[in-house]
Simulated scan of single mutants.
Amino acid sequence: MELAPGLRRIGNDIIAAHLIVDDSGITLIDAGLAGHWRDLQRELAEIGRSPADIRGVVLTHGDSDHIGFAERLRRDFGVPVFVHEADAARARGEESTKPAWGGAKIAPVLRFLAYSIRKDGLRTTHLSEVRTVADGDALELPGSPKVIGLPGHSPGSIAIHVPSFSALFVGDGLTTGHVLTGSRGPQPAPFTDDPTAAAASLTRLETELGAEWSGWIIPGHGAPWRGSIAELLHAYRSTQSG
């Protein structure tokens, strides 16, 4: 699905991955679940591209619902997979956490589980090899993505700023559609390792880009947000104070 010229999404508001497409190739932001491979193939065919055009996968963090088909791209097409050094072990399946499911509601949880199962979410293939990135790195990939550290959801959670597309991918630094409660709008993401640290990390967006920066702000779960960082964080903080 096209969000804007050169900016495309596979998946849906439950779980999504995104493509940055320009003349030099494609950068994939996250890799969803294993079954999103078929969605990727359809999306590539629609724009006349193939997996060979993907120059790199940049993971916002190493959780299973973000690494889905990344190893398949790496193994079969030689596509490098980038992840923050603090989440490298998680992406390789060497460590994991089991955060609480507090406040969950039955209907949204069932939708989340049903969609995950339909997209082969029980069949996670971890990365055999990753390339690590750090806060502040600028990657030589289509769109020239830049790394902004957002630790909290996981130790190596990052945002990815793509200036040429006015896009900011925040992974699970926040969500606009809570998969466990069904609530909408900017708010803390579920399954977060350290909620306090995650909330504090969002100030990095104001510091790095400026509160008035405006564009596509895109989480891994929930609808893309179109507006300024100031508006986004005001809405986010309203959920905290309420």
Rank of each mutant, 00 (worst) to 15 (best):
I158Y: 11
A197H: 12
A107I: 06
V81A: 10
T125M: 07
L141G: 00
V57Y: 06
A52H: 09
L233T: 08
S50W: 01
H234A: 15
V170D: 03
P155F: 07
G215Y: 02
D76M: 08
R74I: 05
K105T: 04
F169R: 11
H178D: 01
P219R: 06
P155Q: 12
A104W: 14
A200V: 04
L150H: 10
W225N: 01
T181V: 03
F69P: 05
L73I: 05
D87L: 06
G215M: 11
P145T: 05
R55I: 02
G102S: 15
L3W: 10
R72M: 10
W37A: 10
G48W: 00
L33I: 07
K105E: 07
T132Y: 08
A31Q: 01
P190S: 01
G215N: 07
T27A: 03
L139Q: 06
L19I: 09
I67E: 04
G156W: 02
A31V: 10
V58G: 14
R237A: 03
T124Q: 13
L33Q: 13
F169K: 11
A17H: 07
P142V: 06
G32A: 02
E94R: 08
I160M: 07
G185Q: 02
E140H: 14
N12G: 05
G121P: 03
E208N: 05
V179L: 06
G156E: 02
R111E: 12
H221W: 00
D172F: 02
W37Q: 10
H61W: 08
A230L: 14
I15G: 02
L150F: 13
D194P: 02
E46S: 15
G48Y: 00
